[in-house]
Design a protein around this nucleic acid. Structure first.
Length: 282
DNA sequence: CCCCAGTCCTGCGGGC
DNA sequence: TGCCCGCAGGACTGGG
């Protein structure tokens, strides 16, 4: 999303409109009239990412933070369905002439922050280190004494910023760690594999422009599908063969969220021991 | 500190 | 075929 917005860097905002939606509108803060007063005339200095959010840096120093949640899209092209357009910023000086925020489910938000507010909202301790920056030692010092399941802990943005449900499942498969493994039972080698797997999976996903799932929600700023869904090792693949060993992928529920993994490639310590004992007696 | 259920929304696919 | 249900890449809240 951030990369897709780079063409608006250097452009000036000439207007901001909250677009009428049939149901409850998304959260735009502050109120649109105040919002407009603070963004119109501003030049876009940079487009940054903060965990799962996109931060558009204005010449005033304020940041417009877009939090897309499940179905939010940032667009410089025509939307997939004009019905769910939520906000438009008009831009001076050529194409693209506008930036759109589109959101089918409407769970996302667009909010404006001063420097101080931004730090309070997105600095530590609210947000952990970014998933592309955090080291194995960071993981271990933050989670090494936690009894939580590793998959659940990875979704906690105050531990590590930027990992969602899909990518947690994928990276644990690459790291060969059982998603229900207690954090305090992970070895140094496993924390190392986990941090490397996170980088591998996230960089791959960025390269393939994300995952456009069956409900067709995620698209890039030009309204094109991503293709990382074709590369998924486990996510959404219950019953299909594991790409590494061929055993059927299973789905479990953790913290009310689906988790997909391979029992063969991601063994829990306990079943491994039992299997080894069993083999010994054989 | 951590778990759990519920909440905000819409749309889709599976099962009957 | 139509209808109902569960489910969805997130984050927050309140209660235990």
């Amino acid at each position: 999303m951030r990369r897709g917005l780079l063409p608006i860097v250097g452009r000036q905002v000439t207007d901001a409109q909250k677009l009428p939606c049939p149901r409850k509108p998304i959260r735009i803060a502050p109120r649109i009239d105040h919002f407009r007063r603070r963004v119109v005339g501003q030049t876009i200095e940079a487009v940054d990412r903060v965990g799962k959010r996109v931060a558009v840096v204005l010449s005033s120093g304020e940041r417009m933070v877009i939090e897309p949640r499940m179905t939010g899209l940032v667009l410089l092209a025509d939307p997939p369905d004009p019905l769910y357009l939520r906000m438009r910023l008009d831009l001076s000086g050529g194409k693209p002439g506008a930036f759109y925020y589109w959101d089918r489910r409407g769970l996302g938000s667009v909010r404006l922050f001063s420097n101080q507010q931004f730090e309070a909202e997105f600095g530590p301790p609210k947000l952990g280190p970014d998933a592309l920056v955090i080291t194995a030692d960071d993981y271990r010092s933050r989670l090494g004494r936690s009894k939580r399941a590793i998959k659940v802990a990875l979704l906690d943005q105050s531990v590590v910023a930027g990992i969602g449900n899909l990518y947690a499942a994928e990276l644990l498969h690459v790291a060969a760690i059982h998603p229900a493994k207690r954090c305090d039972r992970l070895t140094r080698a496993q924390w190392q594999r986990l941090s490397e797997a996170a980088t591998t999976v996230l960089e791959e996903a960025i390269h393939y422009e994300g995952s456009t799932l069956g409900d067709g929600t995620y698209r890039n700023a030009l309204n094109q599908n991503g293709s990382y869904q074709n590369m998924h090792r486990v996510y959404g693949r219950a019953g299909e063969p594991c790409p590494r060993c061929g055993m059927a992928i299973v789905r479990i529920v953790q913290a009310q969220r689906s988790t997909f993994f391979c029992r063969q490639c991601q063994p829990s310590g306990r079943t491994t021991a039992r299997r080894m004992n069993f083999t010994n007696h054989d």
